[in-house]
């Protein structure tokens, strides 16, 4: 026992170093897994508040721009609304009895675009009805999926994440594909699985498919930049320009799928069969 204490005394510098490093590795492996099943919560209200304060200062210089963007969006929504009310007037009692998607507006308080895995911190949390796995969109297109929630804040795994894949559809030919990030430039994504018979033009629109219950169908995801033919002649790739500009993101909407609990239990039962 005495020897052990002497050993610890003598080598306390190295031993403490090893203990701290092991602690770091444990934290790293337990928080960076795909499902982020965490024992340690990484979204934290104090951090959120500090970012928000820093952000508020910056916002004063951008108020004009933000106002303009919101006004433009308002105008667009008004236009859409007028079209919708016109066309659905006769069928009003059949259409949209219960909308299944609700949109919760939120503000971005911190975001990154230049890490290998990027997250966006928004100023709405559990108390505002945000839950894990909800979709997040901006006026320009899809943004990401809620990865973690605290009382007043939520962190969103953006499309700019090495684990992020989104089920999408080519608008003009209904073909389904998976969109992922190309890992370096925040403007571009990649689709890996395009059959060779599919002819794509530059500028073709890509929207969300109906296969995901995180995002509503037909949300803008991006446009085709160029088709990269595969050398072996099997599946072509395409470089996609995201419709969302992640570096200037300010106002987003979190999508609440009102029937999600029902869908989840159905999928779970299906998996159990």
């Amino acid at each position: 026992m005495y020897n052990l204490i002497r050993f610890i005394q003598k080598h306390h510098f190295v031993l403490l170093f090893l203990v701290l490093e092991v602690l770091c590795i444990v934290m790293l492996t337990s928080t960076q897994s795909f499902h982020r099943q965490k024992r340690i919560n990484t979204t934290n209200d104090i951090v959120g508040r500090i970012y928000e304060t820093g952000n508020d200062i910056g916002d004063y210089f951008r108020l004009g721009k933000i106002n303009r963007e919101l006004a433009e969006e308002n105008a667009m929504l008004r236009r859409q609304l007028s079209v919708i009310t016109d066309t659905t007037q006769p069928y009003q009692e059949y259409v949209n009895k219960d909308t299944i998607y609700e949109f919760i507006p939120a503000r971005v308080v911190n975001s990154t675009v230049n890490r290998p895995n990027n997250y966006i911190l928004i100023d709405k949390g559990r108390l505002d009805g945000i839950e894990k796995d909800m979709g997040v969109i901006s006026t320009d297109g899809i943004v990401g999926i809620v990865a973690d929630v605290s009382q007043h804040y939520a962190s969103v795994m953006s499309l700019l994440h090495s684990y992020s894949t989104i089920s999408v559809r080519f608008k003009n030919n209904e073909h389904l594909a998976n969109l992922r990030w190309e890992t370096t430039n925040y403007r571009y994504g990649i689709i890996d699985d395009i059959p060779t018979h599919l002819l794509l033009q530059k500028g073709d629109t890509i929207v969300t498919s109906s296969y995901s219950y995180i995002f509503p169908e037909n949300l803008m995801a991006g446009t085709v930049m160029e088709l990269i033919p595969s050398p072996s002649g099997t599946l072509n790739k395409a470089k996609i320009q995201f419709s969302t500009d992640f570096s200037t993101l300010k106002n987003v909407y979190v999508i609440h799928h009102t029937n999600k609990a029902e869908l989840d239990s159905l999928l779970k039962n299906q998996a159990a069969l």
Binding site: L23, C24, M27, L28, T29, T31, T42, R115, Y119
Partner: peptide, 9 residues
């Protein structure tokens, strides 16, 4: 930064 353990290590 939401990278628990990385900078600490």
């Amino acid at each position: 930064m939401g990278t628990l353990g990385m900078h600490a290590g």
